[in-house]
Computed example of a mutant assay.
Amino acid sequence: MTLHISQRGKQYLKTAQTLLRTAKTMTDQAIAGRLKALADDYERRAEKASRDDAAKALARSAAALDQQPA
């Protein structure tokens, strides 16, 4: 299944990528590990945001169809 990534999801992914790039430059492995965990969280948020945004768009479309005259 192909998942369309919403604009909000793209922003979360961009943040996750930034965190991962920063983690790679860290010499302190404890901080790098925390940054990687935070990046994972942002990736999950991106997936959830995209699913939620798609569901909202579908609901809006269904509502618009219901309001059209028969």
Results as ranks from 00 to 15, higher is better:
residue 1 M to R: 12
residue 1 M to W: 03
residue 2 T to P: 04
residue 3 L to N: 13
residue 4 H to T: 10
residue 4 H to Q: 12
residue 6 S to F: 11
residue 9 G to S: 13
residue 10 K to A: 14
residue 10 K to T: 14
residue 11 Q to P: 15
residue 11 Q to F: 12
residue 12 Y to P: 00
residue 14 K to V: 15
residue 14 K to L: 13
residue 14 K to M: 12
residue 15 T to W: 11
residue 16 A to G: 02
residue 16 A to W: 05
residue 16 A to S: 10
residue 16 A to H: 07
residue 19 L to H: 08
residue 20 L to D: 00
residue 20 L to S: 09
residue 21 R to Y: 10
residue 21 R to G: 01
residue 22 T to A: 09
residue 22 T to D: 04
residue 22 T to V: 11
residue 23 A to R: 06
residue 24 K to M: 08
residue 24 K to Y: 09
residue 24 K to Q: 06
residue 25 T to E: 02
residue 27 T to S: 11
residue 27 T to K: 15
residue 27 T to Q: 12
residue 29 Q to V: 12
residue 30 A to F: 08
residue 31 I to T: 14
residue 31 I to P: 00
residue 32 A to E: 02
residue 34 R to M: 07
residue 35 L to A: 02
residue 36 K to W: 01
residue 37 A to V: 15
residue 37 A to L: 09
residue 37 A to M: 12
residue 38 L to P: 00
residue 39 A to D: 00
residue 39 A to W: 01
residue 40 D to F: 03
residue 45 R to E: 01
residue 45 R to A: 05
residue 47 E to A: 04
residue 50 S to V: 06
residue 52 D to T: 10
residue 54 A to Y: 07
residue 55 A to K: 07
residue 57 A to K: 03
residue 57 A to Q: 03
residue 58 L to G: 02
residue 58 L to E: 07
residue 60 R to K: 11
residue 61 S to C: 14
residue 62 A to G: 09
residue 62 A to D: 08
residue 62 A to V: 15
residue 65 L to Q: 06
residue 65 L to M: 08
residue 66 D to P: 06
residue 68 Q to L: 12
residue 69 P to N: 01
residue 69 P to M: 00
residue 69 P to R: 00
residue 69 P to D: 00
